[in-house]
Simulated scan of single mutants.
Amino acid sequence: MSKEQDYQQALKLEEQQDFPGALSVYKKLIEGSDDPRYFIAYGVCLQRLSHWKQSIAPLEHGIELKPHYCEGDARLFLATAYLESGQKKKAIEQWKLVSQMEPEYPSYEHVPDEAKRMLAKYA
């Protein structure tokens, strides 16, 4: 199977609520990869299992790899990981960044609006 087929398989496993199965596929995908989608998806999947601290490194790395789109979404997930792992200050930093971002695919206005909502709640 190609990496893209594996990625689609992992997404399908997530849709079926098989998060441990999806995690094992994502783990293989990130080995030696420079595709930000794999790292971001891996981090999000870890969050679905409430593995907040473990989700931080793959999300940070995915963002460092400069995704073509969904950077705002990834930063919202990262902010949630920071908040849930007791790093509120870092979460606030992410929300501030996201609140200033231009709306983009796939979530458009939802991303900066959500960041502003979280800032109002926690800052």
Results as ranks from 00 to 15, higher is better:
Glu14Asp: 03
Lys53Val: 03
Ser55Pro: 09
Gln47Ala: 10
Ser55Ala: 15
Cys45Ala: 15
Tyr108Pro: 10
Phe39Arg: 07
Gln54Glu: 15
Glu102Ser: 06
Ala91Lys: 03
Glu31Ile: 06
Leu97Thr: 14
Ala74Trp: 11
Asp73Thr: 14
Phe39His: 15
Glu84Asp: 00
Cys70Arg: 15
Trp95Gly: 06
Gln47Leu: 13
His110Pro: 00
Leu119Gln: 05
Tyr108Met: 10
Ile92Arg: 02
Ala79Gln: 10
Gln8Gly: 02
Leu83Trp: 07
Asp6Gly: 06
Tyr42Asp: 04
Leu97Lys: 13
His51Ala: 10
Ala10Gln: 09
Tyr42Val: 02
Val25Trp: 03
Gly32Ser: 03
Tyr38Trp: 11
Ala10Leu: 06
Leu13Lys: 15
Ser85Thr: 07
Glu104Asn: 11
Leu83Ala: 07
His110Thr: 14
Ser107Ala: 01
Leu59Asn: 04
Leu119Thr: 08
Ala123Gly: 11
Lys121Gly: 02
Lys3Asn: 13
Glu4Pro: 00
Gln54Leu: 12
Met101Pro: 12
Ser107Trp: 14
Ala41Lys: 13
Ala79Ile: 07
Asp73His: 13
Lys12Val: 14
Gln87Trp: 09
Ile40Ala: 08
Gly32Glu: 03
Gln17Arg: 11
Ala81Ile: 05
Tyr82Leu: 01
Ala74Arg: 05
Ser2Lys: 03
Val111Gln: 07
Tyr26Thr: 03
Arg37Ala: 12
Gly86Met: 11
Ile56Leu: 04
Asp6Ile: 02
Tyr105Arg: 10
Ala41Thr: 01
Lys96Tyr: 02
Gln16Arg: 04
His68Tyr: 05
Asp113Leu: 07
Met101Asn: 12
Tyr69Met: 14
Tyr7Ala: 02
Leu119Pro: 04
Glu4Tyr: 01
Arg37His: 07
Glu14Ala: 03
Lys66Pro: 05
Pro20Met: 07
Ala10Glu: 14
Gly43Cys: 14
Trp52Ala: 00
Leu119Ala: 12
Ala10Lys: 09
Gln100Arg: 15
Met1Leu: 09
